[in-house]
Design a protein around this nucleic acid. Sequence first.
DNA 1: AGGCAATAGTTGTATATACAAGTTGCACCT
DNA 2: AGGTGCAACTTGTATATACAACTATTGCCT
Lengths: 253, 253
Amino acid sequence: MTANSTVHTSNNTNNSSAKKDKPAKYTIIKQFICENIESGEWPQNAKVPSENELTQQFDVSRMTARRALQDLTEQGILVRSQGAGTFVATFKSQSSLLEIRNISDEISERGHQHKAKQLILRSIAVTEELAILLNLKNNEHVFYSEILHLENDEPIQLEQRYVNASLVPEYLLQDFSQITPHEYLSSVAPLTEATHEIEAVLANENICQQLEINSSTPCLQVKRRTWSKQGVVSFAMLTSPGDKYRLGSHLVI
Amino acid sequence: MTANSTVHTSNNTNNSSAKKDKPAKYTIIKQFICENIESGEWPQNAKVPSENELTQQFDVSRMTARRALQDLTEQGILVRSQGAGTFVATFKSQSSLLEIRNISDEISERGHQHKAKQLILRSIAVTEELAILLNLKNNEHVFYSEILHLENDEPIQLEQRYVNASLVPEYLLQDFSQITPHEYLSSVAPLTEATHEIEAVLANENICQQLEINSSTPCLQVKRRTWSKQGVVSFAMLTSPGDKYRLGSHLVI
DNA sequence: AGGCAATAGTTGTATATACAAGTTGCACCT
DNA sequence: AGGTGCAACTTGTATATACAACTATTGCCT
């Protein structure tokens, strides 16, 4: 353990938000607008306050109000027309392309509560299949973890992750309270590639039990292999009930 | 405020000549940067001129130089770090995330035989759900088509497509041997956006029958809405048996 | 050599101002 | 009534300035 030697990435020990520091003025305006849209107060095609109106309402300069509108326009939430005004876009776009994100981010973006329940955490034997997936040689270890993600205390995704243990220092494998092997590896060498495969399957008994679904519920299963320059870092299988979870992608051509 | 000082109708001295619109200053800077990156002058991770340097080089204000850098950052071409500088992104993370392609392309890429079987082809009544999905007003028609895609004579995907018929000339709706409504629309106005939602479901009886699967087979279902500048063009639902079909995405970060 | 503090440089946020360019609606005139 | 033109409003572009927050380097001190 060597005491405090390698705390390393101390900044975002926890979830991704954690920006309590400073609510920039334009983010406040953005939130104000988004809330009005989500609540239905401003329906599709409704006119939103002009830059000058926002300038007065929030007592900011026009460029600040403008930035809020501009940001939301680039997100596809608003539409602007020179001379006419700014309007609510006819469709609120999805989460951007399809960068299959951490489900914790998605859940907290929806304003829901996210919990992660560590089920299993151990070294396992290397099967032939794993050796291929992780591109392993002989005598290398694999670290297996199983995490159940809960959205508002309801199971939403089971994450089964296999990490190439030879890339992780021994002491880290003993204690994951500070940092997971995956986080460690991405801090040491940036993860440069990821391959996803998306399937519809019937989950096995173990998964069904964890997700509290019956065995006939179709599940969306994402298999992800992650690379760094050191080689294949991890293989993860994310299984979610099809009736509770879906992937979205908004592609602008 | 200003009385009648500005006639504002274009003085016709040089009206006809030089109708080259107006390259905004920040676009010139953006082009300059992009050219240097594309030519290899500035490799990956290279430092690009700071805002102040660009300010001097191009004789613009810092906010103008900043906008150029900001735009390119949002496009994923540059990476900025407060205090450190602006750098060429290690890779342009562009498009090919998951551009859900025509299944016919995929099948022929696998070297297999693709057939498309037209099952249904008719105008249908506009339900409330369709009106929302296609952003329709009253009295507009919807054209519905159902196509079964076969890979080596085996059903692989059922495509159910709803097209906003008011955007398609009448004569085209009579005969699709030459061109489908969707192809017509994409030739008239380029399709600029597409939204996909990916789910795992159990298909209804009709779909199961066409795909020759039993009702307990989980299916991957992609719902796609396609836009052009004229508005929502079509809504398509692509259903495939989960054991025969999957989506892949290779993401280079 | 190692640790620490100051410093210069860079990006982030914010304000105030000015004019250009496009849209809409009203008032006026024919 | 109908068209015309102007005025008000809106977004787009651009400049100048100020301070905050962060990074990397320099150089001093122990």
